[in-house]
């Protein structure tokens, strides 16, 4: 009756050196393939089919629509800009605080932009004067389109501390 003893581990194992290497290589191949598939899916994730980004070039109407010495907030929600006009110059201010990127508010009665996050304040021309913001608000490029409207180009910005506010593209003279 010795032959009916329950099979031991060694008797059960059909594992030869060759079959061990085969199964390990198959497993390793599947693991590598899964990793590559997962990584490519992750990489694909960074290139979505649809981007909800507002255009960087857009028209904001005729210069006459903007009253002298005013800050226009109508485009803030859509394009995150302010249109600021003093006497004969129009500039486009980026509505992003230069401290940590919150959106400041225009306080009409005080005549200043004020950031709700850390209290940075900017004059109407965008120059920082209170709170922690280290530099003035950035300006965007603007020009007159063929149909007489102002065209803003958000892909080009002008920073005062780099002396770029003298660039003729950073403001629009109105005769």
């Amino acid at each position: 009756m010795a032959s009916t003893t329950p099979p031991t581990r060694t008797a059960n194992a059909q594992l030869t050196r060759r079959s061990f290497l085969e199964s390990v290589s198959t497993g390793w191949f599947i693991f590598t393939a899964a990793c590559i598939a997962g990584l490519s899916a992750t990489a694909r994730f960074f290139f979505p089919n649809d981007l909800f980004e507002p255009p960087t070039r857009f028209k904001i109407g005729l210069p006459e629509n903007y009253a002298p010495n005013s800050v226009d907030e109508n485009w803030k929600a859509k394009y995150r800009i302010w249109v600021v006009r003093d006497g004969e110059k129009i500039v486009i201010l980026n509505a992003t605080c230069t401290h940590l990127g919150c959106t400041p508010n225009w306080l009409l009665t005080e005549g200043k932009f004020k950031c709700p996050c850390h209290g940075s304040g900017f004059y109407r021309d965008g120059i920082n004067f209170e709170g922690p913001a280290p530099r003035p608000l950035e300006r965007f490029k603007l020009s007159l389109a063929a149909d007489g409207q102002i065209e803003v180009d958000k892909s080009r910005k002008y920073q005062k501390e780099l002396g770029q506010w003298n660039d003729p593209d950073s403001f629009l003279k109105i005769s």
Binding site: A77, L100, C102, N105, C115, P116, C117, P132
Partner: peptide, 26 residues
Amino acid sequence: PAVTPNPSKAPWYFLGLQEMLVYYDP
């Protein structure tokens, strides 16, 4: 992104950090 609540406060345990940010650069 165009509307930041006023005032905009960090979670309560980070308010000390937010207060530091008023005085020092990020």
